[in-house]
Computed example of a mutant assay.
Amino acid sequence: MKNFYDDIKSTKKSLRNEYNLIRNSNSSVVYEKVKLNVKSALKILLNKYHVEGKYIGIYWPLKGEVDIRFIKEINSLKVALPSSSKSKGISYHHWSNNQLEIDSNSIPAPTRKDAINPNDISILFVPAIAIDQEGYRLGYGGGYFDRLRQKDLWFSIPSFLVISNNCISKKPLPREKWDMPFNGWISEKGLHQIEATN
């Protein structure tokens, strides 16, 4: 007999398929508009949250995700990339010009660098397949970001999704007890901050 969590799991799976199709239908114009909005949102968020010398956490883009690696070229900013391990979860590492290596999920990552303490990161930008109005993310099913952000220090870092507007759900997405809300998103319509994240 199916239990409640099996139902959520299968609902999430079908929503992933649905939103992946939506996301893959986006034109390059949409992605360029999101990137422009990341640039302008970055100024607002840096002014609000950033402490000089701390890192901005970004991501290596996979298919369908908006490429925000240009943030690394902004001179005054130190950038961190995540490395995921199936046994240890996600850790963030300084992204210098050294060669990246493939992590356990086949994503390029600066695996040889020491992990960065969450106290040294001021903002996180994270990809997603979808997000709802309350900031709950639909990811790829590995639970990496939720497990990371269950730790208070990580949850306290202002964290925003970079996503196209057609992947922002009007209805609440299915969530499990470990799903953690984000502080908002950046889409082709701009920066949206969720004031109260419970």
Rank of each mutant, 00 (worst) to 15 (best):
Y59G: 04
S96H: 06
R175H: 04
S10T: 09
N26A: 04
S104C: 02
K48M: 03
I44D: 07
R16N: 07
L42K: 00
K171Y: 14
S28E: 03
L191E: 00
L21P: 01
D146C: 13
Y49R: 10
Y55G: 00
L77E: 15
E195D: 08
V38Y: 02
F182Y: 11
P110H: 03
E195Y: 11
F4K: 06
I186T: 05
H94P: 03
H93Y: 11
P61D: 14
V126A: 14
A196C: 11
G184T: 09
N165V: 03
I44K: 02
V29C: 01
L161H: 03
S164R: 04
A80T: 07
F125W: 11
L36W: 13
A80L: 04
N97S: 12
E188N: 07
N98R: 08
I71N: 02
V38Q: 00
N3L: 10
K2H: 12
E188D: 07
K63Y: 12
G89A: 08
G190I: 03
D103E: 08
R112E: 05
K88Y: 09
S96N: 09
I68P: 10
P172M: 12
Q150C: 10
V29N: 04
I90H: 02
S122T: 15
G184N: 06
S87P: 01
E134I: 07
S96C: 01
G135I: 13
V66N: 05
L173E: 00
A80G: 09
E176Y: 11
K113H: 09
E195K: 00
S76D: 08
V66M: 03
K13V: 02
K33H: 06
V162W: 15
Q133P: 06
I123K: 05
N26L: 10
K177D: 14
M180Q: 08
